[in-house]
Design a protein around this nucleic acid. Structure first.
Lengths: 194, 194
DNA sequence: AAATTACGTCAGGTTCGTTGACTCACTTGG
DNA sequence: CCAAGTGAGTCAACGAACCTGACGTAATTT
C-alpha cells in the first residue's frame, strides 16, 4: 500500500531536544530545518493522540457491546467509580456533556443496576452517584482491558518515559482538568513541580 | 490559573520505575501498597487520556463550527494532508470507519473545494486524494490551534518528557498504527529501540 | 417571599458512525 | 480474452451519542 513518503529522514537524534527551545536562529538554514522538524514533531503528535486514543478506548468495546452499552456509559462508570458520591452536576462538568446526554446514559446504568443514587446529606436536592457492587464489577472488567494495554506500554517504555508521558498529557489539557487531577490525586501533582 | 509547573524535578526517578516492575513481593505490606499504586497509576492514565484528548480535539472546534464542519472532516483533512495522494481505501483503513461514513465527509470536503481527486497512475480505478490550496490553508488553520496547545505542553515538559510521551503513546496503540508511524515518519522509530 | 440551584424530563435536531446491497470501471489471472 | 476480483461511489435504513431550548419540582439561599 501506498502511504508514500518513503524518503528516509537522516536528521540527527540530537534534534529532539533542540526542537523544544525557542531556537534563537543560529544559522538561517539550520533554523529553517529545525522549524520544519518542529512542525513535523507536532503533526506526529496529532497522529499519536489519534491512534493511542482510538486503540485505548477500543480495548473495552468488546465487553460493552456484549451488554449493549457504549463508550458514553463506560466514561460515566469510570468517573463515578473514581468519585463515589459525585453529584450529577459535577459529573456533567467532568464529562462536558449536557444534562440530557448524561440523563440517557445514567437512566440505563441505573435501570441495569450498575449505578445507585443517594440523597445529598447537606443538600437534599443533590443525587449522589455511586457504583453498585455489580457496577464496580463491570467497571473492573472494562478497566482490566485497558489496563493490559497501558501496563504493557508502561513496561516497555520505562519509568522515565511514563513520567514524561504524564507531564506532556497534563500540559495538553485544560487548567480545569489539571486542577481536577491535582484535587483528585495529589500524588500526581508531583508532575507540576517540574 | 493552575498550571503550576516550574522546572527541575527533585524526585528520585527510581520510584517511578519500581511501579512498573512486576515487583517480586519484597514484603507483604510494601507489595500491597505498590499494587495499589500501580492500579492508581493506570486509572490516572485513563483520566489523562480522556482529558488530553478531549481538550486537544476541542482546540480546533471553534474554526470547524464556523465552517459547518465537524471533527470527522478535520481528521480526513489531517490524514490527506499528511499523505498526499492517499487512496480512498487506505484512508478508510487509517480512520477505521466505513466507506459510507467517509463518503459523507469526503463529499462535503470536495464540494467545498478543500479536497481534490486524481486518477491513479498505475491503477486507474483509484482516486488519489489531495488537499487543494484552500484545503491546505484550512488544515493549517486547524493545525495552528492544536499546535499552540501541544507546543506549550512540549516546552513545559521538556525534551526528555516528550520522548517519554512518544514512547508511551506508541506503546498504547495497535501494531498497525505503530507500523504506520514507522512507515510515515521513520525518525519516530527511534522510540522503538527502547 | 423571591430568586436561585439541582435535578429530571419532554420535544426535536445534528453528526457521525453502522450494515447491506448494488453499480460501474478497471485490473488481473487462468 | 473473458471471468473474477478489486477500488470506488451510492442508495436506503438505522443507531449511538451528542446538541438546544424549555419547563417543572423540590430544596436552598437571600
Amino acid at each position: 500500500m501506498p502511504d508514500q513518503k518513503g524518503s528516509a529522514d537522516p536528521r540527527p537524534p540530537a534534534a529532539a531536544v533542540s526542537l523544544l527551545e525557542p531556537q534563537k536562529e543560529a544559522r538561517p538554514a539550520a533554523g529553517a530545518n529545525l522549524l520544519f522538524l518542529r512542525e513535523e514533531e507536532i503533526r506526529t503528535a496529532q497522529d499519536l493522540l489519534f491512534f493511542a486514543y482510538r486503540d485505548f478506548t477500543n480495548a473495552a468495546d468488546v465487553i460493552l457491546e456484549e451488554l449493549g452499552l457504549g463508550r458514553a456509559h463506560h466514561r460515566a462508570l469510570h468517573f463515578i467509580g473514581r468519585n463515589p458520591g459525585i453529584t450529577v452536576s459535577d459529573l456533567l462538568a467532568l464529562l462536558r456533556i449536557t444534562k440530557q446526554s448524561l440523563a440517557r446514559v445514567l437512566t440505563v446504568l441505573m435501570e441495569e443496576g450498575y449505578v445507585a443514587q443517594a440523597q445529598g446529606h447537606s443538600d437534599r436536592r443533590q443525587r449522589l452517584l455511586t457504583l453498585t457492587p455489580s457496577g464496580q464489577a463491570l467497571e473492573r472488567r472494562l478497566f482490566e482491558r485497558q489496563r493490559e494495554r497501558l501496563l504493557a506500554a508502561y513496561r516497555e517504555a520505562g519509568g522515565v518515559a511514563v513520567d514524561g508521558f504524564r507531564r506532556v498529557m497534563r500540559g495538553i489539557m485544560d487548567d480545569s482538568a489539571r486542577a481536577y487531577l491535582d484535587r483528585h490525586d495529589p500524588a500526581e501533582s508531583r508532575a507540576r513541580r517540574a
